[in-house]
């Protein structure tokens, strides 16, 4: 019983980890550009397809890396062509453009990859399972947890200890003062958007073997990521981590123990947080 619960907790961590990688991208982009990127789920979906296409010719890991790079480049284009020109307009303009982009990207996926669902096979090396306290657990899922942990640690170290990370934290609070110190905050923003969309691409490919690829696969992860971002506090890195892990568990345990309410619980949590502490439980700093 206890072991079965442990397996469920691990499964929750898998989903929470994926959710973290997606939402931390949203958080970073919001921190620098004050933009709620509705296209983020579609970038996750495009990442899954791009990774799928690369993986079928060049192997799984090339797919993961390739999807991250392609989506990062797309992120730079997105920043330069949408976020930067619209930064002085009403934020609703940017939101509408990213919403339009969501629709365009779904159509693009339909056109390029067709309406049939694809499945990305597991990499051979990780196809088996690992024994955890006498229970088998898929090795691939452990790897997903490890990647999420690596992304979290890597980002935290980068933000905390690197020079550019310092510029990122400073720009997210006071872009004008940061720029006055000589920092080209537009470049910092483009980099951060690229990191955010690159992570969406990476997580899309990592998630692909666990989900069926379809043009609409970005929808539910986008919604749950929004919940993570709201619960964790808009723009908060540590808040996103805690909220993603919590919602991963809630999502997973909910499906097992209260299936009739599983999809509702994250929303209830969001409503509760909004009522109890509207800034989220970690405030609002990157």
């Amino acid at each position: 019983m206890a072991n079965a619960l442990l397996i469920q907790v691990l499964n929750g961590l898998v989903y929470g980890g994926l959710l973290f990688i997606v939402s931390v991208g949203l958080v970073l982009i919001f921190g620098l550009r004050r933009v709620v990127n509705f296209a983020h789920g579609s970038l996750f979906m495009i990442g899954a397809y791009v990774g799928f296409s690369i993986a079928t010719v060049a192997g799984f890991w090339a797919g993961v890396l390739g999807a991250a790079v392609v989506l990062a480049v797309a992120g730079v284009l997105l920043d330069v062509s949408v976020f930067r020109p619209l930064r002085r307009q009403d934020p609703i303009a940017t939101v509408l453009v990213t919403f339009g982009l969501l629709l365009i990207l779904e159509d693009l996926a339909h056109t390029v990859w067709g309406k049939d669902t694809h499945t990305l096979p597991l990499p051979e090396m990780l196809a088996g399972s690992v024994d955890i306290l006498g229970q088998p657990f898929p090795a691939y899922r452990l790897m997903v947890i490890a990647v999420a942990a690596a992304v979290g640690v890597g980002l935290a170290l980068w933000l905390r200890f690197s020079r550019v990370g310092l510029f990122v934290r400073a720009s997210s609070i006071d872009p004008v003062t940061t720029a006055v110190q000589g920092v080209n905050t537009d470049r910092v923003s483009a980099l951060v958007v690229a990191v955010g969309t690159g992570l969406a691409g990476l997580s899309g490919t990592i998630a692909a073997p666990l989900l069926a690829l379809s043009p609409s696969m970005g929808g539910s992860i986008l919604i749950e990521s929004f919940i993570v971002v709201v619960v964790g506090g808009l723009g908060s890195f540590s808040g996103a981590l805690i909220a993603a892990l919590a919602i991963g568990q809630i999502h997973n345990l909910g499906i097992i123990y209260v299936p009739w309410a599983a999809t509702m619980v994250p929303f209830l949590l969001m409503v509760a947080v909004l009522v109890w502490r509207p800034t989220g439980f970690a405030g609002s700093h990157v």
Partner: peptide, 15 residues
């Protein structure tokens, strides 16, 4: 900048 320490604010000045 409020979310940076005193030392980090100084380092920012050396951008």
């Amino acid at each position: 900048i409020p979310n940076l320490t005193v030392r980090e604010n100084l380092i920012l000045g050396a951008a």
